[in-house]
Computed example of a mutant assay.
Amino acid sequence: MNNKRIANIITLVLITVLISTSVAGASVRKAIPFEAYSLKGEKIDVDFEKEFTLLLFISSECLECLYRLLELKNNVQSLQLENKVRILPVCIDCDWRKLVQLTKAVNSEMFLVPADLKAKWGVWETPTCFLVGPAARVLGKWEREVPFAEIEKTIATYFKDKRNVVASRKNTSSCSSSFCY
């Protein structure tokens, strides 16, 4: 074989490995803890150890974000997951005045977060939703749309198999330290 053909084969293998790693990465990486703040100025330590959390990153300028938040709340109620899943909407570019307006618009509490959280979690567009399991493992990441059937299936699988084989695999994500790329 000539060198060019070998280089092409190696490139193809590397691309395949990178794609398979990044797809599995969201389902096995450890959730990055952070602090959020309510409109009252109360500091909230976000702990992913106890329950499922749907972490929704929204932007103050994004109407689709508000729609997805309302859709998320309605679907969690209709799927009867309120006792199993906590919805945590965080605004990544809000000041407190914008957050007051958004909270009134959707009749739901939202939280302020540090500016660097967007990069730490690998959020490149809004809305972005993460499903974090009780073992503080990121089980899924979705941008724009939230597939509720997939979320329901993931949660049902988790309760069916308490060992949660998917979440216990070694970290193969594209995260290093506390940053994702």
Rank of each mutant, 00 (worst) to 15 (best):
F111N: 01
L88P: 07
G140M: 12
K118M: 13
V85T: 10
D93Q: 08
G122S: 09
Q80R: 09
P89G: 06
K98I: 02
V85Q: 06
W142Q: 03
A115M: 04
N107A: 13
M110R: 07
D116G: 01
E145I: 05
E125S: 15
E125G: 14
T103G: 04
P134E: 09
N83C: 04
R144L: 10
L72A: 14
P89S: 03
P147G: 01
E145A: 08
C91P: 02
A149S: 13
L139W: 05
P114V: 08
V100N: 11
L72I: 07
K120I: 02
C94E: 05
A115S: 12
V106P: 03
E150M: 07
V123P: 10
K104I: 06
S78T: 11
Q77S: 15
L81I: 01
Q77R: 14
A135C: 01
V90Q: 05
A105K: 15
L99K: 13
G122V: 07
K120E: 13
R144Q: 11
P147R: 04
A105Y: 10
R86A: 04
W121P: 10
R86F: 01
V85N: 11
V123S: 04
V106G: 09
F111T: 00
P127D: 04
W142V: 05
V132K: 00
E109F: 05
N107I: 00
C129P: 02
K84R: 13
S108G: 00
P89Y: 10
V76G: 01
K84G: 00
L99Y: 08
N75V: 06
F111Y: 15
N107C: 07
L72R: 01
S108W: 06
N83R: 13
W124K: 05
V113E: 06
L139G: 09
G140E: 07
V146Q: 01
V113F: 03
T126Y: 06
V85H: 09
K120Q: 14
W124A: 03
P114Y: 05
L117Y: 02
K141F: 09
W121T: 07
M110F: 00
L88W: 00
E82W: 00
V138W: 02
V132Y: 08
T103D: 02
E145W: 01
S108L: 05
K141A: 12
E150W: 00
P127H: 06
C129A: 15
P114I: 11
K118Q: 15
E82K: 12
D93F: 08
E143Q: 09
P114A: 12
K118I: 08
K118E: 14
A135Q: 13
P114H: 10
G122L: 01
L99G: 05
P147T: 03
P114D: 14
N74Q: 11
D95E: 10
E125K: 09
V85P: 05
L117T: 15
A115Y: 11
G122Y: 09
V138E: 15
A136C: 00
K73V: 15
L102I: 15
L112R: 10
I87L: 12
L112P: 06
M110T: 07
K104A: 05
V113P: 08
P134D: 03
Q101E: 13
